[in-house]
Each structure stands twice: as structure tokens, then as C-alpha cells.
């Protein structure tokens, strides 16, 4: 992947009527990467996207596009196109006219418009749909038209605001792969907004996890899943057991009234921390071999694995395992040192 930055967001803050929705956002987007802004609703991810698109002006901070400050440039002068959440297709135009809209505005010659629209329709698998009205299309087809309408302008960056939110699960999975393939084929930088962590993990090169208007972590999907920086990220990405712990010294942590070896260091002595363990990292072992033990209180079949809740004192451990232990069984559990993630407690402001 190209290392040059195409977009830099510098100290972006945003306020609406006195409430801060974005608080000092800093990150960069590299050329041709698939970057996802991930977070729960109200975390500021859509606002961030709208600032990049030019639909909102940040209260503070700069947006740099290829080295040029574009903070005050209106959307129609940016080489950025957007796929809107509800597609925002023009209802008074047919499929062809919708896709051709941007090219017509730019006064591209007619035969070239024809050619490029045709090409786009092929790319999004909608050949022969030129004359169709927007109402007659299914959600998935409208989605494709929206993508074609944006991509036909050959933008340098494509912004996508939860574009798959309105589709059903199966179609969503299909479109995820399709979008990712499309992005590789056309070689355009994609900035994608979603609250669906699975979607983010499957499609992205880089994920920016946001919460309460702040960036929680930036990294590759693997980094973010395996090395969440704080309890929020751990909880939001995949499922996690988060328990209170005390750091005795480097590489030694106490939680659930036991002392464990771990791989983290750099905490103060006796510092209170959050301990995060993924449910699939808790291994079921015979009672006498367990570092932890408890009684199974519930079992749910999840398809690939079983999800079990194991009560250990006042902690409920969630375990994912292909082996099922019936409710009421007392079991032992083990966890490898590298699977114990220690995080600084987040001080609530």
C-alpha cells in the first residue's frame, strides 16, 4: 500500500449548540487504503465523515487533502464523492440519469458519459438497468446505483456512510465482499462508516475506533482485535470478559482472587486495572487443573461454538468452546499469559 497520506485530519473538534460531538480528532488516511470509522451510534463517526465530505465545517481544526487545506472548500469543489446512508438517489431520474448526474454537471461530452455510465453499470452488475426508475429497484440494486453514481466521477476518495445498513444479512455479506473487491479493482481510497464491528474487521485495512467524540484506537483489524488499547475497544470489538484486577508488579496481575502471570508491564505497583480475556481464550480443563473454576449457569448454541456462562464467585465468565458442558457442571478454566490483556482503567470524565 502507498504510504503517502491523502487526507490528514488535524485537531478536529465539533460542537453543536454547546455540546461537543468531536473532541480533538487526529488521524490520517493513506492513499488507496480502506479505512473504517467504527463506533456506536452517536460516537461522532458520521460527523467526521461529513467533515471530510465538506457538508459540515468543524468548529476547530483543519482538513488537509493532498497537502492542501480544504477545510473551507464546499463539497462540490472537492475530489471526494459520497455514498449516502439511504442512498439519496434522485427520484425524478432513472438509473442512467442518476449515474450520469456528476458527469453532466462537469460538462463531459455525451458519448463519453454514455461510455462511462455503461462501464460503471457493468462494474456494479446492473447491465441493462439504464432506463429503470429508482422506485422499481430493490435495496441492493439502489445501493449499487448509489456506488456507481459516486464512482463514475473517479473521485480520489469515496466516502461511505453505513451503506449496507438497510440490507438484510445475506445481501450485506455479499455486498461486503463485493465492495472490498471493487475497492481493490478501482484503486480508490475508501472511507467507510459503520457500527458493525464484524463488517469493519472483514473489510478494512485500517480501523479507527471512536466513542463519545474521541478516537479510542487506530490500527489494523488484527491489532484492534488482539490488542485492544482499552476496555471500550475490547468490549466493542468482539466479545470480552472484562474484570477488575490489580497489577502487583511487571508481568504479575491479580484478578478473581488469584495471581496470574501475564505479558504486560509498565504499570504502577498495585495499580488497579481492567483485565480483558476473550471468551475463546478461556480453555475448559478438568476441575483440578484449572487456574479458575466455576459452575456452568447457562449454555447457548451459537452454531460454530457454544456460549457458556460460568459463575466463579461474583464473576460471570463467558466462554466460547466447541465442547459443551451441561448446566450445573463444575469446571476448571485456564488462560495463557499472552491472552490476558491488561488495560489502564478509563477515568470517566
Amino acid at each position: 500500500m502507498d504510504k503517502t497520506h491523502i487526507i490528514d485530519l488535524k485537531n478536529i473538534s465539533m460542537e453543536y449548540d454547546g455540546t461537543k460531538v468531536l473532541d480533538n480528532i487526529n488521524f490520517y488516511i493513506r492513499k488507496n487504503e480502506f479505512l473504517t470509522l467504527l463506533g456506536p451510534s452517536g460516537c461522532g463517526k458520521t460527523t467526521t465523515l461529513r467533515i471530510i465530505g465538506g457538508f459540515e465545517k468543524p468548529t476547530e481544526g483543519r482538513v488537509i487533502f493532498e497537502g492542501r487545506d480544504i477545510t473551507n472548500i464546499p463539497p462540490y469543489e472537492r475530489q471526494i464523492n459520497t455514498v449516502f446512508q439511504k442512498y439519496a438517489l434522485f427520484p425524478h431520474m432513472n438509473v442512467f440519469e442518476n449515474i450520469a448526474f456528476g458527469l453532466k454537471i462537469k460538462k463531459v461530452p455525451k458519448d463519453e458519459i454514455e461510455k462511462r455510465v455503461k462501464e460503471m453499470l457493468r462494474l456494479v452488475n446492473l447491465r441493462g438497468f439504464e432506463k429503470r426508475s429508482i422506485d422499481s429497484l430493490s435495496g441492493g440494486q439502489q445501493q449499487r446505483v448509489a456506488i456507481a453514481r459516486a464512482l463514475v466521477n473517479e473521485p480520489k476518495v469515496l466516502l461511505l456512510d453505513e451503506p449496507l445498513g438497510a440490507l438484510d444479512l445475506k445481501l450485506r455479506k455479499e455486498m461486503q465482499t463485493e465492495l472490498k473487491n471493487m475497492q481493490k479493482r478501482v484503486g480508490i481510497t475508501f472511507v467507510y462508516v459503520t457500527h458493525d464491528q464484524e463488517e469493519a474487521l472483514t473489510m478494512s485495512d485500517t480501523i479507527v475506533v471512536m466513542d463519545k467524540g474521541q478516537i479510542q484506537q487506530i490500527g489494523t483489524p488484527v491489532d484492534i482485535y488482539n490488542e485492544p488499547e482499552n476496555a471500550f475497544v475490547a468490549k466493542f470489538i468482539g466479545e470480552s470478559n472484562i474484570v477488575d484486577g490489580i497489577m502487583h508488579e511487571d508481568y504479575v496481575v491479580e484478578f478473581a482472587n488469584r495471581v496470574f502471570e501475564c505479558v504486560d508491564k509498565g504499570f504502577e505497583k498495585k495499580e488497579e486495572v481492567d483485565v480483558v480475556i476473550r471468551p475463546e481464550d478461556l480453555e475448559i480443563v478438568p476441575l483440578e487443573e484449572g487456574q479458575l473454576n466455576g459452575v456452568v449457569t447457562s449454555v447457548t448454541f451459537k452454531g460454530v461454538h457454544y456460549e457458556m456462562i460460568v459463575k466463579d464467585g461474583n464473576i460471570d465468565w463467558m466462554i466460547h468452546s466447541t465442547i459443551m458442558e451441561p448446566v450445573g457442571t463444575e469446571i476448571g478454566m485456564r488462560v495463557l499469559p499472552e491472552n490476558i490483556h491488561i488495560m489502564k482503567k478509563v477515568v470517566e470524565k
Binding site: 439519496a88 438517489l89 448526474f101 453514481r149
Partner: peptide, 26 residues
């Protein structure tokens, strides 16, 4: 829908073009 206006702007239409090509026809 406000997003139609934004979509038109996004696709390069200035205020006048947004009006003549989207707002007015609708």
C-alpha cells in the same frame, strides 16, 4: 430529503445547479 441536496452538491453541483436540477424538478 436533505440528503438529495447534499448528494447533488457532492456530485459537483453548485447552488444554482442544485436548484435547477434537483430542488425545482422535485
Amino acid at each position: 430529503d436533505k440528503s438529495l441536496i447534499e448528494a447533488a452538491e457532492d456530485l459537483g453541483a453548485n447552488k444554482f445547479e442544485v436548484f435547477s436540477k434537483v430542488t425545482f424538478p422535485l
